[in-house]
Design a protein around this nucleic acid. Sequence first.
DNA 1: GTGAAAGCGCTAACAA
DNA 2: TTGTTAGCGCTTTCAC
Lengths: 336, 336
Amino acid sequence: MSSIREVARLAGVSVATVSRTLKTPDVVSPATRDKVLSAVEQAGYRPNLMAVQFRSQRTRNLVVLVPKIANTFYARVISGIQLAAQSRGYGVLLCNTQGDEAVEAQYAHLVSTRQADGVIQLRAYNPFRDDRVGAASLPMVNACEVLDATPYPTIKLDNRAAAREMTEHLVALGHRRIAMIKGPRRSPLTRDRFDGYRDALEAVGIAFDDTLLCPGDFTPQSGYAGARALVERAKPPTAIFCESDEMAIGALQWLKRAGYRVPEEISIAGFDDIEFASYCDPSLTTIAQPAEAFGEAAIEMLVALIEGRKLEPLHRVLPHRLVIRESTAPPPISLT
Amino acid sequence: MSSIREVARLAGVSVATVSRTLKTPDVVSPATRDKVLSAVEQAGYRPNLMAVQFRSQRTRNLVVLVPKIANTFYARVISGIQLAAQSRGYGVLLCNTQGDEAVEAQYAHLVSTRQADGVIQLRAYNPFRDDRVGAASLPMVNACEVLDATPYPTIKLDNRAAAREMTEHLVALGHRRIAMIKGPRRSPLTRDRFDGYRDALEAVGIAFDDTLLCPGDFTPQSGYAGARALVERAKPPTAIFCESDEMAIGALQWLKRAGYRVPEEISIAGFDDIEFASYCDPSLTTIAQPAEAFGEAAIEMLVALIEGRKLEPLHRVLPHRLVIRESTAPPPISLT
DNA sequence: GTGAAAGCGCTAACAA
DNA sequence: TTGTTAGCGCTTTCAC
């Protein structure tokens, strides 16, 4: 591992000239440039970026805090992030946090310890909460699931409007007993989607029935258990709106195991439009989110923050789209 | 962002004492230690790890090259990696490469530029191939999909034996026309699994029929297209063995769309045992791999390499397990 | 256009 | 036990 000094010796120039040749080639004479470049080649020189970053106090690395890296929705967001970061000359450090706040704080420290220039947080939690440095003094952007009141820039979906649309779709099909399998209690996503569901019911005068509510945690397992619980109610639903596709797929699985026909006997709706949503049977009616655009927007805003440019607007809302597939249909005639 | 100097000033000691208090607290007097620690607290001091790493020439960061982060199999490997790395005091930098060799080389450079201490490569490719530094001089471990002849340590499954077992399972059910949807042509995984499939057929004297072979790329889309192509053959198969669960799920989807009953009319088998394998309908017969153990073993070997300990053995093989679920059954009687 | 030299924040050898 | 000091590899003035 040869150093810049070795290259300088080989080329018969000073280390400053080597550095200049590499950083600002147009400022050295062509003859020197050639000498230096062939010395670089000969020595197999690779600059020690630890030293470069240390010296320039910039790493050009960005940290991304991902709750669940295996989730195909997040995978698409990440893909958007990587593309956008790369085109701006930044590297991406992916951190799989499983929503563990200690892990998030630890990785966020990559920024406070200057191993990275900024953070993209995909969950509604401030990983710098216990840090001594003042809020919002460290470059961070909060996307997808965002904090309610935060000094950090945010990018989100209008979850309330999206859930309202999905519920309206079910109502339009003729459903009156529409259940909801919710996400984690503390998630703003859950609250907003639930609010949208209620909005839609209220708008058409369907009385809210809390026996049609079921807790979940966005996993297929919780959808599986939730479907069973809902169907065993005294007055079971004719449609189940799950706050995530993974839960919807779990619910679908239980219903089919239990001998129910979907959507003839009961409709299922999801949220996210993950890849398997179109590969399950029946394919899933869901809400599509512009996942890659989340990533692109997050990077754009974070880089602006890091490079000291003004951010306008500070909070962005991205568009959603209702995707109607096979899992939703009118309720059985006997039940309308 | 206060520096060690600021803390030293506040505590009325030298910077060396501050450094000692933080690194080797037992070597400073309790009184000084208290003074320093409260100064650290007061200043909100966080050591500049860029400087620490630069100075000590060690980052305690490890790079993991992941072909597809959204794949739940890799997600489990990563989970094993993270746990094992954390317990040894190393951080993990996840890199989603999509199998792009340029991207892999770029991230591998985090090591040759000393931003990380070692690499775990989950694909059969040497990201240092074009590097000037000699092969195997940089700490790297190759796991899951491994290079054939390589100076780097490897950890893999006995893919050939696993595929043979799966094929034997299908043969035992009575199948004679067993198709295979293969993975990417260049992957050693594909070659080994195909060899195992042939081994099993040969062992029971079933003539090999290359019209029962179909190319794929591990995605659901290629499984979907592959199932259609195979069923439209002059002599269609009674069972399809897919080299990945994602392809099996795609195949399942096409068959159901086309009105085939699985497994009554045609059996489907996968490979990997991803999460959705037990959530699709019918649930998928597949080969389970000890994903977390791959991660654990990779870290153990990489850390040994970095810390200059001897590695024994250099190449490890982890155990697989045939998981029989609902998607495989005897062929229709008319066809036996 | 090029070189000499300072210094980024920290650790570790050596001295006191 | 603590302080002084050199120096990790590089970039960037400031002279020349």
